[in-house]
Simulated scan of single mutants.
Amino acid sequence: MGVLAGKVAVVTGASRGIGAAIAVRLAAEGAKVVVAARTVEASRSPLEGTIGDTVARIEAAGGTAFPQATDLSREQDREALIRAAEERYGPVDILVNNAAVTYFTPVSEFTERRYDLMFEVQVNAPFHLAQLVIPGMRERRTGWILNISSVAARHPTFPPGSWAGRGSTVYGMCKAALERFTTGLAAELYADNVAVNALSPNRVVPTPGTLFHGLTTDDDPNAEPPTVMADAALALCHRPAAELTGRIAYSQDLLTELQDRAL
């Protein structure tokens, strides 16, 4: 038994990294978790981790989960994801939009196909998935929607630092749009007691993706463990909307704030 006992959670991009850590943490608190991502077989991706691996971790710890192969760029897959969750476990109480497709390329070299794909997965998909779960949350007058963001959403400082040449402009655009969607939706759903928040790590998290892009290393002393994001996600996925909603939160800052409140 945990604070999420009886709740149904959908976590996208949960085959590895932050998404997998969040799925495991929610399950440890009693949630029935639908683990969604494209990667079903290890050979299909250059990055380590599959939805089956995450489900196996959850079940080994005594939790409940099932894998749902989902291409978030496809409208029909998004609809199938929520339908599968409802048929298997019941109405969705928690939606964590974590999935991302990212290309670090300068604007002058960005292709239309990659641009459209990034916005489809990181902006349109969270918007659509929220639309699919909102009616049920409103009817039950409870629910939590969490969008995973990044410090890349912030405007660069000038003169710009060394990161300016890494081609993160489009990634930052996606996350900025996601954050504005978060606060707007939180305002819309406030009276319905549905919490909507965005969460970013304070520092780069070592994941298969960030390691692949050379954003950090396994032995980086300044990196943030995925479990910190998972703990912060849990904090945003069970408190009343009147207490925590419409936040653009940073993991370590949020956990410190909540710890100080408890003292």
Rank of each mutant, 00 (worst) to 15 (best):
V11S: 01
A241T: 01
R203H: 09
I18G: 00
A14F: 01
L117I: 06
D231P: 11
T105Y: 07
L236E: 05
Q131W: 03
G161M: 13
T210F: 05
S73I: 09
F104T: 07
A37L: 07
A241S: 03
A80E: 08
A60F: 06
A198C: 11
D260N: 14
L215S: 04
V123H: 02
A223I: 02
E29S: 04
R83W: 11
I94G: 00
T142W: 10
S149Y: 05
P159Y: 09
D219T: 13
A262D: 08
R38S: 00
Q252H: 11
D77R: 09
S150Q: 02
A56I: 00
L132Q: 03
R138I: 10
E139D: 15
G167F: 04
R180D: 05
A23C: 03
V196Y: 08
T227Y: 03
T157Q: 11
A230R: 02
M1W: 15
V196H: 07
S200C: 11
G214W: 10
A186W: 04
Q76G: 14
V133A: 01
W144C: 07
S108W: 08
S150P: 08
F212A: 08
R113G: 03
L254F: 02
A61D: 09
T50Q: 08
S200M: 12
V194L: 10
R88L: 14
W144H: 15
S43C: 12
P206R: 07
V204L: 05
T256Y: 13
R83N: 05
